[in-house]
């Protein structure tokens, strides 16, 4: 993984330049929305503007659809995703099986539908965990600085230095040695845990550098001069101004995490049959790409649509939180 800090700060400079053009070119221009006498705030305004964005609506519909699929797969298919019929192995899509059959003759359509649950849970929870943990640690490290920052940063570096796959194998095989009869729920949470533990330093670094920049702004000085508490400064002043790069990273990372789950499954330390996940399907299809491309195409396509939906959502939220983009 590369350090995305540089990219984040480059983005910031661009916005600054944009801002100058706007400020110079327009002076005071009438504000968005009518002044209806009610006082509004950032989050309320962001919600109002989100609801008007087609990108947000499209992504929200896709995500809602996926969620329903995860909760009630029976609504979309009645085929048992684990039922194998070797005589149907690797058959291409047909009217009977829209997405065809896999190596062991299982219905790929049913498996894609049933795989949503595990993939979505891993992706969303791992992203949430990484973003929350990394952001909090990064915010505190950036705001307080000094020895606290030094300790937290070195601590993060240790995790950052661990190669992901190696680290995950160590964690998962410790908690979950081969042959142990743990249920899928437990394994899913172990996978999420190992992803969070090994990836939070990235968000921490992004957040820390954003917080370092924001901390030096005069508005933080003004807030301190008013007597604002550190908590207030961190959550009212720093957080809204540092969230954007983390959101962008988080929405891209979500896809990576779903794929990571696949890697772990492939290595035999992650989810395994009978649990169905896109990751398991993609890793199954890898070697058969030339013989049966449809085995890869459909789960990978579903993954791509999911990731795209979350990236769009992240973008829309980021823009909505930026008053200049409204």
């Amino acid at each position: 993984m590369t350090d995305p800090t540089a990219a984040a700060s480059a983005g910031k400079m661009e916005t600054r330049a944009q801002e100058e053009i706007t400020a110079e070119g327009h002076g005071a221009r009438p504000g968005g929305g009518a002044d209806d006498g009610k006082q509004r705030s950032l989050w309320g305004d962001a919600w109002v503007s989100l609801r008007r964005r087609p990108i947000f609506i499209i992504s929200a519909v896709i995500i809602l659809f996926l969620t329903v699929m995860a909760l009630f797969p029976g609504l979309f298919t009645s085929v048992d995703p684990t039922k194998a019929d070797l005589s149907l192995a690797r058959q291409t899509p047909s009217a009977d099986a829209w997405f065809g059959y896999d190596q062991q003759g299982r219905d790929i359509y049913a498996r894609v539908i049933h795989g949503v649950r595990a993939s979505l849970v891993v992706g969303v929870l791992a992203t949430l965990g990484t973003v929350l943990l990394g952001s909090l640690v990064g915010l505190f490290a950036g705001f307080y600085g000094g020895w606290l920052d030094a300790i937290l940063s070195r601590f993060a570096d240790v995790f950052f230095g661990l190669p992901f796959v190696l680290g995950a194998i160590v964690i998962l095989s410790t908690f979950n040695p081969p042959g142990t009869p743990y249920g899928p729920v437990r394994i899913i949470f172990q996978v999420i845990f190992s992803i969070v533990v090994l990836s939070w330093p990235v968000t921490m670094r992004i957040m820390r550098s954003a917080a370092l920049t924001a901390k030096q702004q005069d508005y933080v000085k003004a807030a301190r001069a008013l007597g604002a508490s550190p908590t207030r400064i961190i959550f009212r002043h720093l957080l809204p101004n540092t969230l954007a790069p983390v959101l962008v990273y988080g929405s891209i990372a979500l896809g990576t995490y779903i794929a990571l789950e696949a890697t772990l499954s492939f290595l035999g330390v992650g989810l395994r049959t009978p649990v169905v996940s896109w990751g398991v399907m993609i890793s199954d299809a890898k070697e058969l790409l030339r013989i049966a491309p449809h085995m890869l195409l459909f789960p990978a396509g579903a993954l791509a649509v999911t990731v795209l939906a979350f990236v769009m959502l992240g973008d829309a939220v980021r823009d909505a939180l930026d008053p200049k983009m409204r």
């Binding site: 801002e19 950032l42 005069d218 508005y219 001069a225 101004n241």
Partner: peptide, 22 residues
Amino acid sequence: IVLQDPYTSLNPRMTVGDIIGE
């Protein structure tokens, strides 16, 4: 205190009402 730079002394993500109400 009144600070020098009017471009960085106001939190860009707060409404004027929130800034003066803080």
